[in-house]
Nucleic acid binder design. Sequence first.
RNA 1: GGUGAGGUGGCAGAGUGGCUAUGCGUUCGCCUGCAAAGCGAAUCUAUAGGGGUUCAAAUCCCUUCCUCACCUCCA
Length: 466
Amino acid sequence: MRIFDTLSVAEKNVDTTNSVRIYLCGVTVYDESHIGHARTIIVFDTLRRYLESKGVKVNLVQNFTDVDDKIINRAIKENTSADIISTRYIKNYFNDFDKLNVKRADLYPKATEHIADMISLISGLIDKGFAYVSKNGVYFAVLKFKEYGKLSKKKTDELISGARVEVDETKKDPLDFALWKFSEDSPTWDSPWGKGRPGWHIECSAMSLKYLGSDFEIHGGGRDLIFPHHENEIAQSESFSGVNFAKIWMHVGMVTINGEKMSKSLGNTKSIDHVLKTWGPNIVRLFCLSGHYTKPIDYSEEILKETIIKWRQVENCYFEMILSDDSKATEDLDQIKDIMQESKTEFDNALDSDFNTPLALSAFFKLVKYINQLASSEKITRKISDMVFPTFQAMSSILGLQIVQVTEDEKNQISNLIKQRNELRSQKKFQEADEIRKQISDMNITLIDHKTKTLWMKQEKIGIEN
RNA sequence: GGUGAGGUGGCAGAGUGGCUAUGCGUUCGCCUGCAAAGCGAAUCUAUAGGGGUUCAAAUCCCUUCCUCACCUCCA
């Protein structure tokens, strides 16, 4: 599998001989998550599912930033503690992402639980001459790290001339960034240099080094983290360890709305709670995977509505398969097998080639469409379904799609009602038949009358349609 | 201003030299008691503008215009 590496500006092979270690920069827990966060996390969830489907062991670590000025400000505003705020939004995070069918990472380290690791990393950097103590805190001396700017392709002299660097007289150089900030206001921790709290960047260096080592396979996050966050992580980590940090830097494009980046500061976000209520998890996942992960995708009702139609086709395909029977239709198993395998090969090849999910989706939909074609011409049989179903399931599962499940009781109840209805239809008692259809539709079941049988499917309820 | 990524049919979105994906939409049709869903056919023959290289370019080179992101916290 090849993935585009931001650092070398080229596709690189992911080494899957041992386990694939992935560090994903998670969220700062001071507010609800939005669909921008969801995209990045769904991309990595799908990547992880794909690798695991190939039998590759994945070790995914995703942090929570639970010490930060934004959290503290929110706590002050609500007259409560930072701890209560971060706990609340971590809970909120899991609630959202469980609903989005995102598999839990192997580990969710929190910054506040790794203060000691950060302190020892900072000490190491001071000892090696890369960091110094000043009046306001401990700073990383950017110019000591010769390769600074290699990820974001920025030159240090141009950065200095940029006027927006924080003015702080106590720093030796305006580019230097804080590893530890002195503070008397809670929350604070003791350190060899004085009471305070860690800078943002050091937490990811400390936690990734601790759990994944100094040269793990993939470090990921949103594109907006390239500078300064990931640039600074590289400076810290490589200065400390003396070896190259992550092998591949994988960055996910932004979700835009009306062509503009979705962000808290612009106030144009769509919360996960909102999109789940409006579109549901499957539509959101399909949407997030509908463009190549390196490019921006635009959130618009028009596109999301289009996605509903695609999702209905998947549902249709699923129910056609699970409810197929031994009709006498002629089968050409070999041809069907070829089409099925072709679709899966295309799917895998697309993902192997820089995780091209839109191309993979088109391969998946080729199979879906083909099955629906067979079904439409009443050519689908139990044998065909049994053959195709595992491949369909494999792809759905990699994409993290979940079709509404039905119980045996429901199945029996529905097939009884359908029998009654068809009886009435054959007697041309259409009004009564329609009443039964209404009854069935109240159970969220859609009927499809084929020539020789009536198919039913339990469709996901999509908020916007009601 | 600097750096990076882009500009593909009505829309979304693949495609790094030749075979011009895929999906949605639109029109007509099949199926149906009606519907819904599904399916079929047709439609669109697109590659920001201008040059160039080549037998051949969306794909390579030059140039103009435009968009977005980052340069401050951000997924």
